[in-house]
Amino acid sequence: MNTLAATWDWFTSAANWSGENDVWHRLGEHLFLTVVCLALGCAVALPVALVLGHLGKGGALAVNLSNIGRAVPTFAVLVLLLLSPIGMYGQRPTIIALVLFAVPPLLTNAYVGMRGVDADVVRAARGMGMTGSQMLFRVELPLALPLVLTGVRVAAVQLVATATVAALAGGGGLGRIITAASTRSSPRPTSLT
């Protein structure tokens, strides 16, 4: 019951809801970090997936290579960036790690969506005299859009959940509240005398 009471006290304390390090400021940092990483992930993954899905070549290799990233935890990538010779701190290593984390669902869903477009529709578009780019943007992309947007949604959910690791690299976000709470609640060593 002590933890529940402490949590209630924290949520009802005015000091946690105003000032430079308040919940609203940390929430803004968290959302900014999520939006930036999602936008960068989309800028990296979606053009590759759309082109490879349109061409029908090399997509399986790209999807498998990007899915290797799912096997490596974001925290491990963050630690490697922190311990690298260039020793990045703050938001940059977190952004790199989170963008790498967002790429697999974006790339996989966009590629699968493009390859899932009915071949008869593509042949009909080609028979009507459409160029490759016209087929991509007027036929294939609109039909693949539900799966592309599903990948964006999955990546966004993963980023919101994982962006708390930013606090471990000295970045902002809601992870700062969690790490501050864990340092306050850790047991203090007592002297033997």
Rank of each mutant, 00 (worst) to 15 (best):
P47D: 15
A155D: 14
V160P: 02
R123F: 04
M135E: 12
T193C: 05
V165A: 05
T183L: 12
V103I: 14
A119E: 15
L107D: 10
L159H: 05
V51F: 03
A169P: 04
L107R: 03
I178R: 09
A169V: 00
V48C: 07
M135C: 11
V77R: 00
G28R: 14
T150M: 03
A60W: 00
R184V: 14
Q158L: 13
T162V: 14
F75K: 00
V122G: 07
T164I: 07
L107N: 08
P105H: 03
T183K: 07
S191I: 11
L141D: 08
S182H: 08
A161D: 00
S13F: 04
G113C: 05
A15G: 11
Q134Y: 08
G28C: 10
T94H: 07
V154G: 03
V103T: 07
S185T: 15
H25R: 15
A144T: 08
V72F: 06
R176H: 05
P105Y: 02
V154I: 15
L83T: 09
V103K: 02
V139F: 05
F101E: 13
T7L: 15
A124M: 04
V48A: 11
L40K: 06
A76V: 15
T74S: 14
G172M: 10
G41P: 03
G90V: 01
L106F: 01
E20P: 09
